[in-house]
Amino acid sequence: MTPPEIFDRARRRARRDRAAPLFAEASFIRDWMLEGISERLDAVRREFTDVLDLGCFDGGFLPPPGARVTRIDAGERFAAMTGGIQGDEDRPYVPEGSFDLVIAAGSLDTVNDLPGALALIRRALRPDGLFLGAFLGGVTLSTLRSVLLEAEADRPAARVHPQVDVRAAGDLLVRAGFALPVADVESLDVRYTDLFALVRDLRGMAGTSLLPAPPPLSRATVARAAAAFAARGDAEGRTTERFDAIFVTGWAPDPSQPQPARRGSATASLAAALKPKP
């Protein structure tokens, strides 16, 4: 039995197509993620020749010098802009063992099958290939979530999709078969003059809700949400919204990688090491 999908795939493609023409004006979240990915990539002392930019948006990721890059995006316009391929991240279309580096910045939080997408990334990598990803999670949009709940106190509806936390992200890497998995979180606070400025940014980055068939917001509800947002403002009349980026790193297994010690192979007792010295 196929599980129900969390996100509306057609709406996801349409939102990305809507955002494509002016994406550069609202790309600061993905730019921030790409900066973090580039820092992590700079710390790796090896060469990469075949790179997959999965969920490429406008192609802002710069591959290592001399590397061939393949770009895939769910949106038709983003794919066309970058000379890439249109496709969903959790659908099986990437040949096995095709790449030695896969990056995915800003898209994996809205795929219907995140474990499946990670498993596909793992299979797309050659042995000892590297995956670097970043996506919104944690308590992202906590202010927006709070004011919408306040505005719809009598009959609240789900309007901000569930977020993956850093521990779950690490578990998903292990489940997908990555070696040496690492997951960490970085936060960015953005101050807005009003609720509508936040919504404009979310639309510009294709970050509005993709939950299927949400009930429409009435004008009265929007007004209450805007007032609740403004009430949380600081002395300068700006309200802070939080974005949490979950950064994930994993390697395709290879015998050359460091291996955990065999259980029971220790030659010293932890209890003895912790004893006070005479």
Rank of each mutant, 00 (worst) to 15 (best):
P214R: 14
L202N: 01
V185M: 15
R175A: 13
V199D: 03
P215H: 11
T221I: 14
L210I: 13
V174P: 01
A227I: 00
T221M: 01
D171N: 10
P212C: 00
F196Q: 12
S218P: 05
A230C: 05
A197Q: 14
D189Q: 13
V182T: 11
V199M: 15
A225R: 03
Y192T: 02
R232V: 01
V199Q: 14
G237T: 00
A206M: 01
R232H: 07
T239E: 09
T208E: 09
G233S: 15
R191A: 15
P215A: 12
L195H: 06
P212W: 10
A213H: 15
R224C: 02
F178E: 05
T193I: 10
F178D: 08
A231Y: 05
G237S: 08
A213K: 15
T221K: 11
L173F: 03
D171G: 12
L188N: 10
T239C: 06
A235R: 15
M205F: 03
L202E: 00
G207V: 05
A228C: 10
Y192R: 11
L195E: 07
R238T: 04
P181K: 03
A225M: 02
G204K: 04
L172R: 11
P212L: 12
P216K: 09
A231R: 08
V222M: 15
S209R: 08
R224N: 09
E186R: 15
G177R: 06
A226S: 12
A231P: 05
G237W: 01
L188D: 11
A197K: 09
L211R: 08
R175E: 07
A206T: 05
R191F: 14
L217N: 08
A228P: 08
P216M: 12
G177C: 04
R191T: 07
A206F: 06
L217F: 11
L173D: 01
E236F: 13
R238N: 07
D201Q: 00
R203T: 00
L202V: 05
T193Y: 06
P181E: 05
R238G: 05
L210H: 13
A197H: 13
G237V: 04
D234H: 02
P215F: 08
F229I: 08
A225N: 04
A197P: 07
R224S: 08
P181W: 03
D234W: 12
A235C: 06
L188I: 06
G207A: 11
D171C: 12
A179E: 06
A176F: 07
L180A: 05
R203Y: 04
V222W: 11
A213D: 15
L195S: 06
G177Q: 06
A183L: 05
F196P: 02
G237C: 07
A235T: 13
L202D: 02
G204C: 02
D184H: 13
V190T: 13
L211T: 09
A179C: 08
R203F: 00
F178C: 06
R224F: 08
S187Y: 09
D189G: 14
V199R: 12
S187G: 06
S187N: 10
A220Y: 01
G204H: 03
P214Q: 08
L211W: 07
P212Q: 09
G233I: 07
L198Y: 05
A183P: 09
T240G: 04
A231K: 12
R232A: 14
